[in-house]
């Protein structure tokens, strides 16, 4: 079988403070990665990333470096859900993201859903470095198939790694791994109890503890939140499908962001 052409994408976005607002400091985009900078109100710079290849398959490679300079605030989201399509045997799509939050800065990493299709193979890594009293909000919703279309993931390989360092110290790590019959696995009672949608929410900031009680109120039936250690708040949410996941996830994001959800989420 001929090898599929590979999609490559590189993106670099950084923000800097200018007075009370945050503005673009540097933008580099190549290959299938693009970033749009819509005008929005508020003090944050919002960047919307876009995969012009229309999805990710085996052999694709996407790298992003996102930085918020001192006292600036950068919100990153995506134009659409990211579709992870069938990969040729032995080929893996990869995405690698580095976030860097300077002292007094904040990054809100709010991509829309990653949708896994049957026969996909995808490895994703995100590492974040926070300096001083920088703040980071990280939200990653993942859907296994699309329940409305009755698409199930019966064979796949997905791994998702997160590492967050604060002043050099590793304060949070999460590694999700799904291989083989993902739908069957998620049906197991003590894995996901039939859920096809899940999300991780991580908020690392000096004021993390003040969000613990409000988030507990917002958790769905199958969701939990914990202040794992001072300054590190983590929530896991499960839902039957993407629609229900959004219903519980959007209020959580809005509470942590102290702002409405990025507009791309709502259109």
């Amino acid at each position: 079988m001929p090898r599929q052409p590979r999609a490559l994408g590189r993106l670099r976005v950084s923000s800097k403070a200018r007075g009370e607002r945050s503005v673009l400091d540097d933008l580099y985009q190549s290959g299938a990665s693009k970033a749009l900078l819509p005008r929005v109100s508020g003090r944050a710079l919002t960047a919307v990333s876009l995969n012009t290849a229309g999805g990710i398959t085996g052999g694709d490679r996407f790298d992003a470096t996102i930085s918020a300079g001192e006292n600036s605030r950068l919100t990153m989201t995506t134009q659409a859900a990211e579709r992870i399509y069938r990969a040729q045997p032995g080929e893996i799509g990869r995405m690698s993201t580095r976030l860097s939050v300077a002292d007094g800065a904040r990054i809100d990493w709010l991509p829309q859903e990653t949708i896994l299709f049957d026969h996909c193979a995808f490895e994703r890594r995100l590492s974040a470095e926070i300096t001083g009293n920088g703040r980071l909000l990280l939200v990653e919703p993942v859907l296994a198939g699309r329940r409305a279309s009755r698409e199930e993931v019966r064979t796949a390989r997905f791994s998702d790694h997160y590492e967050i360092r604060r002043d050099g110290e590793l304060v949070f790590a999460d590694a999700t791994r799904l291989t083989g019959d993902v739908a069957g696995h998620l049906d197991e009672r003590f894995i996901a109890g039939g859920a096809r949608a899940f999300a991780s929410v991580v908020y690392v900031a000096d004021d993390a503890e003040s969000f613990l009680a409000p988030l507990k109120e917002l958790m769905p039936e199958r969701g939990g939140v914990s202040l794992i250690r001072p300054g590190v708040l983590f929530a896991r949410l499960l839902a039957a499908d993407g629609y229900l996941l959004r219903q519980s996830l959007v209020p959580v994001i809005e509470r942590l962001q102290d702002a409405p959800i990025p507009r791309t989420w709502t259109i």
Partner: peptide, 18 residues
Amino acid sequence: AIGSSSFIGDIASMTHED
């Protein structure tokens, strides 16, 4: 190779706090 998928177990350990 580190990785898990015991979502329900993770959530149970969170809700146990309360």
